[in-house]
Design a protein around this nucleic acid. Structure first.
Length: 460
RNA sequence: GGCCUGGUGGCGGAGUGGUGACGCAGCGGACUGCAAAUCCGUGCACCCGAGUUCGAUUCUCGGCCAGGCCUCCA
């Protein structure tokens, strides 16, 4: 089966056909680096990482170009910098470093490009100049505004009837706007804010223009895939598309618009403004990143996902199952891991990760139950499939014992040796006492035919 | 007010016009000095109403409920 993706613009699942199979282009809206990322922010990163990996497999590693922007000019960054009395780059560097570390812990590959707004200023200004020249933008009171009337398809992506929307909008309309829907491309900086020179006067870019300029600069319009959270459909992506189309007169902006559903926490979405956030930065200190990744992919990317401790716990148990199966199959030689046909089929069906996960379970079952050569086939399929999307890359021993530091591990090994001696002497009371001691250390001991193995229990 | 999602078993979550994935938890059994893991078996669902149909959880319409967007937001 060929790759099929659900496109927000046409609201249908379509066969994916890149403009140029030698250079497949994908852009995803990235972070504004003024704070740590929460798991809701991590959802698109992980979901589109799966797509990136799948595209690399289909078209070749060197034939997929993936860009994700870093917004490092923003009101909240300015506010934070002012509050701490430091330049904005102190803030942005701190949170960008943390972002990279956190997303890496979740198994996300780095995008090919991570353009930063502050380093895209020339392209931004050039694009605004072109928009003005094309009569798609106008200047007013130190601002440059996009003229939505210049783009007849404005509202098409979000399917918003513009006249009705304006009537019901809760937005205060700035007096210098020709139409309430017009949006800022360039605006004057307030005192103390970062400022850039431009033909339109000193100031800084509006929110939407950086993405269009980065796409143009790093990928070239039109692009194959544009991704982001579904809250960005309007106004951000609507505006991006309008700008790009009017600036470059391209036939399309992006051929496939992909939007992930939201992660909810309780009854509401998780958001920084609501304050109900779980930071990845905190979570990774007490939970394996792989389990967080599994939890994030346990629902289809377009569906809402309810975040809970129980979800994480279930994710850990699933991975326990797989690593356990691999541990028991340590003796099975695998020439070359390769994903199974059913697994690829599930992923190619608009990234159906739940179905793909079901196939991983089927492969693990085969690995446990079959004998002889079938085991090698199952192991190759399990490893090849799981690793394609960033799972089961660790050694089973590291998965089960990774939470123990070397000193603790040494102590555990000593206790287990003592217990083995007691068991050999059939001193069950002492053996059980040692087991109790290990349990107190959060360690579970498993007696097997070839001796005891152990693992750290999940924290409760 | 406008627009957009979604409502599946105790929980998570696919999918389908007709034999009701998959996982976790539960229950029974095998195995085990104990325990875990593993294996075998097992119960449980498709928000409500109407329509279309031989037949709907799946299609259509109408409700109800929940969430999101229209303002920074993944």
């Amino acid at each position: 089966m060929a790759l099929r993706l659900y496109d927000t613009l046409t609201r249908e699942k379509r066969d994916f056909a890149p403009i140029n199979p030698d250079r497949v282009t994908m852009y995803v809206c990235g972070p504004t680096v003024y704070n740590y990322a929460h798991i809701g922010n991590a959802r698109p990163v992980v979901a589109f990482d799966v797509l990136f990996r799948l595209l690399r497999r289909i078209y070749g590693e060197d034939h997929v170009v993936y860009a994700a922007n870093v917004t490092d000019v923003d009101d909240k960054i300015n506010a934070k910098a002012a509050a701490e009395g430091v330049p904005i780059d102190v803030i942005t560097r701190r949170y960008l470093d943390a972002y990279h570390a956190d997303m890496s812990a979740l198994g996300a590959l780095r995008p090919t490009f991570e353009p930063r707004a502050t380093q895209t200023m020339d392209a931004i200004i050039a694009m605004i100049e072109r928009l003005i020249r094309n009569n798609a933008a106008y200047q007013a009171e130190g601002h440059v505004l996009f003229n939505t009337a210049a783009y007849s398809d404005y509202g098409k992506l979000s399917r918003r009837p513009m006249d009705e929307m304006i009537a019901g909008a809760r937005v205060d309309v700035a007096p210098y706007k020709q139409s309430p829907a017009d949006f800022v491309l360039w605006k004057p900086s307030k005192p103390g804010e970062p400022v850039w020179d431009s033909p339109f006067g000193p100031g800084r870019p509006g929110w939407h223009i950086e993405c269009s300029a980065m796409i143009e600069q790093n990928l070239g319009l039109p692009i194959d895939i544009h991704g982001g959270g579904n809250d960005l459909i309007f106004p951000h992506h609507e505006n991006e598309m309008a700008q790009g189309m009017c600036a470059d007169h391209v036939p399309t902006y992006a051929n496939y618009w992909l939007h992930n559903g939201f992660l909810n926490f309780g009854d509401e979405k998780m958001s920084k403004s609501l304050g109900n956030v779980v930071l990845v930065h905190d979570l990774v200190t007490r939970t394996p990143g792989e389990a967080i990744r599994w939890a994030l992919l346990s629902a289809h990317y377009r569906q809402p996902l309810s975040w809970s401790e129980d979800l994480l716990d279930q994710a850990r148990r699933s991975l326990d199952r797989f690593y356990g199966a691999l541990e028991r199959a340590a003796d099975v030689e695998v020439a070359e891991p390769a994903p199974s046909a059913e697994f690829l089929d599930a992923l190619e069906d608009d990234l159906n990760t739940p179905r793909a996960f079901a196939e991983l379970h089927a492969l693990a079952d085969r690995l446990e139950k079959s004998v002889g050569g079938d085991r090698a086939v199952a192991k190759a399929g399990l490893l090849g499939s799981a690793r394609l999307i960033g799972f089961l890359g660790a050694e089973p021993k590291a998965w089960f014992q990774g939470a123990a530091d070397p000193a603790l591990a040494a102590r555990i090994e000593t206790l287990i040796a003592d217990r083995a001696a007691s068991r050999a002497a059939r001193d069950w009371a002492k053996a059980d006492a040692i087991r109790a001691e290990l349990t107190a250390l959060n360690v579970e001991v498993m007696d097997g035919a070839t001796g005891a193995t152990w693992r750290m229990r999940e924290k409760t």
